[in-house]
Nucleic acid binder design. Structure first.
Length: 876
RNA sequence: GGGCUCUUAGCUCAGUUGGUUCAGAGCACCUGCCUUACAAGCAGGGGGUCGAAGGUUCGAAUCCUUCAGGGCCCA
């Protein structure tokens, strides 16, 4: 035989992917068919494929391929995200290596570098997705910074501004001093850090008295504008209405009272620094305190820092505590664990900072999004448990800070024409802005030169929240054919970690801009962890190289490996052994093909066993198909795969092929051959979404196919009848087969040696399966007898008894012991059933079906006991 | 600190409204086979007090309470 005994993925994968692309199977345009749409969660433009992507995209591909085979117009839109902070950080770092500072460049110069960088390094991940087999419509590849998406973002910003939903506010924000930008709350990671609590003494004005406060940040005392005590605190009653003097800078500040102060914490006496702490800011507003900002943008101290000006905050913390100690101000320090906010991207410690920012009001926007997921089932989450998390967030949502102090992103379309807080207009273009500005300023002499566009860009999520709409041009041209056809999309597959960043916001924008859900179902994958339950990450180095994995196990093997352990919403403990299992499965299918391919077909009558076997398999197939459809409808992908796995491995390969297999070097009859090819092809269809490459390869080997006959667009199997008599009949036969094999094994009788089997057919079991049983156990003859035989090995299936006469002595004692064990178990079982049935409350309360089941159990057990007792008597 | 969630075989997980021989699957493991599709295979086998303790019920892995230990989100 010229077909190799091992499947070679490398070769097949490239060949078939090219073939699929060449024939445009993945390309979709609107037509009469029902659409099936998925939009990819756009990976970072400069990202590379990691395990999370592999899982996520395998599932999307599987859903897309299945929909395509089911006759839907499947459209999977790929794309990338410009990831403003991450990308800008990378470009800045790269420029730095070349000796260029971002601050020395103009905005346009910087953007030119950023685009060059994007064009050079971007999109690698898309090629990696092709290796995985992803059937995306590559003609539709979108980018959150491309022209269409840029225009969509700007249009939406202007629209929301005009609706009064976007406003400008001077707020305390999370400032990343390293990236020099604002972060949203979601981008701040809180970490427990061991720090110190400093106890400082402030002089009371006009007295020798001192008051001690506790702080974790001694460097901020230069920005203090009050001392705060709890009005109920007995210890500080005498301080009311007095003033304190800030050490070092000797400013006089009021002592205020507020029950915000925790009497138990520290000394019960708090310093207030409104510019550098969110709670202090609130106190400052309430008590109308002065605000003194002591930091520069890079978190070095400014002129308010006096002799510390220009030094970094952490350097100052050390130096100032030393100075305070020397001056006797620092009375003691204590170890203190506190939660420090750090930047998700740069890891820098976040500095709360007051600045002008743009905000989106969420209160009204969020209402339809809550309704769509929680009150109606317009959008369904799989698994459902994430709806609780969603509710919690949506009901406590805060306004969204959408501005970022970066250049890489959509520049905010606000144009300033004067120095006043309100001297700006918002428009899609500078010309429109000018017209508006002339009106607002009442100055017809204004020119575009007088307008200054806001320097900041929008949060990346402010572009990706429009993704399901903007990829079809639905923002800029809301009534175009594509958006009307493809929207709303069907399934969204993503990780629960971006439930808020992305999923919730898409739901919001979907209802706001289409008045319709953006997708029907959201499938949340778990996080990929390693065997020790650690999150896979670059820094831990515990993430396997995706491309290497595919090289070793084949893309199909890796796909199967990932899906085998991916119950929706559960984190998955990735283990390479599972890829090995996937690879073995691919090889199993490959060899099933080799066997059939090697047969010579002749004009022969169909053997009885083959006829029975094929008929049984067809019912089994349909039974499994029903199971699979049920699993898919619940997004139980692992279960669907396992059903197919067992069908193909156990039922098709181990049973059916063995049943129909002709004797060595003998031909097979045409009818059986044609039928087995047909069922094999049905198997390949079910397997295709999971293992696209292998199945197409085998499919094309089975017969010459035109491009229209490729497996990738073959029709998904349709449900046909299930003959339950066949299913049950085979189950019984299988028990007999196992019985015979067990005896062979126990007595070391080689498979080559034919056996004779005698049956005491108490259960009146059909003889239809005898041919199959004989074939699978190498039994020369099955004869039916009226009484038990002496000197034979025996086993029982239900109330039937089977005897295998063999030469040599039978260990009667062992046979008796075996039967007695069975008898004991069956009697015990009967007692438990009888107990149930004699319990009136059970009989009265349990449903009819359950009682009938119990009665059948009783009858079966009684029949079996009778058989066993007869056997014992005969051995006697 | 608040909310959510989980704990079933060595591992990863099913187990739907409590009720079929319900204690399961896959992998791993053990034993025997190089049987000419596949040793990446075939056949057979062992293995769990369902996290703990109470409770409800004719009946609990499943419902309730408490406890222990993980995880996630938010503050």
């Amino acid at each position: 035989m010229d077909i190799p005994s091992k499947y070679d993925p490398q070769n097949a994968e490239n060949r078939w992917y090219d073939y699929w692309i060449e024939h445009k199977y993945f390309h979709s345009t609107p037509d009469d068919r029902e659409p099936y749409t998925i939009v990819i969660p756009p990976p970072n433009v400069t990202g590379i494929l990691h395990m999370g992507h592999m899982l996520n995209n395998t599932i999307q591909d599987l859903l897309t391929r299945r929909a395509r085979m089911m006759g839907k117009n499947a459209c999977w839109v790929p794309g990338m995200d410009h990831a403003s902070i991450a990308t800008e950080a990378k470009v800045v770092a790269k420029l730095k290596e070349e000796g260029i500072n971002k601050s020395d460049l103009t905005r346009d110069e910087f953007l030119k570098h950023a685009w060059e960088w994007t064009d050079t390094y971007g999109g690698v991940i898309l090629d990696q997705l092709k290796k995985l087999g992803c059937s995306c419509d590559w003609d539709r590849t979108a980018f959150t910074m491309d022209e269409e998406r840029y225009a969509s973002v700007i249009k939406v910003f202007v629209d929301l501004f005009n609706k009064g939903q976007i406003y400008r506010g001077y707020r305390m924000v999370n400032w990343d001093p390293e990236a020099q930008t604002t972060l949203s709350d979601e981008e701040v990671i809180y970490e427990e850090k061991q720090g110190l609590l400093y106890y400082l003494e402030y002089q009371i004005e006009g007295s020798d008295e001192k008051v001690t406060i506790a702080t974790t940040r001694p460097e901020t005392i230069l920005g203090d504008t009050a001392i705060c005590i709890n009005p109920n605190d007995e210890r500080f009653q005498h301080l009311k209405g007095k003033k304190a003097i800030v050490p070092l800078c000797h400013r006089t500040i009021p002592i205020i009272e507020d029950d915000y102060v925790d009497i138990e914490f520290g000394t019960g006496c708090l310093k207030v620094t409104p510019a550098h702490d969110i709670n202090d800011k609130a106190l400052g507003e309430k008590h109308k305190l002065e605000t003194i900002d002591i930091f520069n943008a890079d978190a070095t101290l400014n002129s308010f820092g006096m002799h510390y000006e220009g030094k970094d905050r952490f350097v100052v913390r050390k130096e100032i505590s030393k100075e305070l100690e020397e001056k006797g101000v620092l009375v003691k320090t204590e170890q203190y664990m506190n939660n420090v906010g750090t930047s998700e991207r740069t890891k820098a410690v976040i500095e709360p900072r007051l600045s002008d920012q743009w905000f989106l009001r969420m209160e009204d926007l969020v209402k339809p999004a809550i309704n769509g997921v929680l009150d109606t089932d317009d959008i369904k989450f799989f698994p459902k448990k994430f709806e609780n998390t969603y509710r919690h967030w949506m009901e406590n949502i805060r306004d969204w800070n959408i501005s970022r102090q970066l250049w890489w992103g959509q520049q905010i379309p606000a144009y300033f024409f004067g120095d006043g807080q309100d001297d700006f207009v918002v428009a899609e273009s500078i010309d429109e802005a000018l017209a508006l500005a002339k009106v607002k300023s009442n100055n017809q002499q204004l020119t575009t030169d007088d307008l200054r566009q806001d320097e900041d860009v929008l949060d990346t999520w402010f572009s990706s929240w429009l993704w399901p709409i903007s990829v079809f041009g639905g923002i800029t041209d809301p009534d175009n054919e594509e958006i009307n056809y493809y929207y709303p999309t069907n399934d969204l597959v993503t990780g629960p970690d971006i439930l808020f960043f992305w999923v919730a916001r898409m739901v919001i924008s979907g209802y706001e801009y289409r008045d319709e859900r953006p997708f029907e179902n959201v499938y949340f994958t778990g996080l990929v962890r390693d065997k020790q339950r650690r999150k896979m990450s670059k820094s831990l180095g515990n993430s396997p190289d995706a491309l290497e994995l595919m090289k070793e196990y084949g893309a199909d093997g890796v796909r199967v490996g990932m899906l085998l352990c991916s119950a929706a919403g559960n984190d998955l403990m990735f283990d390479e052994d599972l890829c090995q299992q996937g690879k073995n499965f691919a090889n199993k299918i490959w060899n099933g093909f080799r066997l059939v391919k090697g047969w010579e077909v002749a004009d022969l009558p169909q053997p009885e066993a083959s006829k029975k076997g094929i008929a049984w398999y067809q019912s089994k197939f349909n039974q499994t198909l029903v199971e699979i459809e049920d699993h898919f409808s619940k997004y139980r992908i692992s279960d669907a795969l396992m059903s197919i796995y067992k069908l193909v491995w156990d039922d098709y390969s181990s049973s059916l092929l063995e049943i129909i297999k002709p004797a060595y070097q003998q031909p097979i009859d045409k009818k059986t051959f044609d039928e087995v090819i047909q069922v094999f092809e049905q198997n390949l269809k079910l397997l295709h979404p999971f293992m696209p490459f292998l199945t197409e390869e085998v499919w094309q080997h089975i017969a010459e196919r035109t491009p229209e006959q490729a497996l990738v667009i073959a029709e998904w199997p349709k449900f046909d009848v299930i003959d339950s008599d066949l299913i049950e009949g085979y189950e019984f036969a299988d028990a007999v087969i196992s019985g015979i094999r067990t005896i062979r094994k126990e007595k070391n009788i080689p498979m080559k040696e034919a056996l004779e089997v005698l049956v005491l057919n108490e259960g009146k079991v059909s003889t239809d399966w005898d041919a199959v049983i004989r074939k699978l156990t190498n039994v020369s003859e099955i004869s039916y007898i009226a009484a038990a035989v002496d000197g034979a090995l025996s086993f029982r299936v239900k109330s039937n008894e089977y005897f295998i006469p063999i030469s040599g002595a039978i260990d009667v004692e062992a046979e008796i012991a075996k039967i007695q064990d069975e008898l004991k178990y069956t009697k015990g079982f009967l007692v438990s059933v009888q107990k149930k049935l004699s319990n009136e409350r059970f009989v009265n309360n349990a449903p009819e079906q359950v009682i009938a089941g119990e009665r059948k159990k009783q009858a079966d057990a009684e029949a079996k006991i009778e058989t066993l007792e007869k056997s014992l008597a005969s051995l006697g």
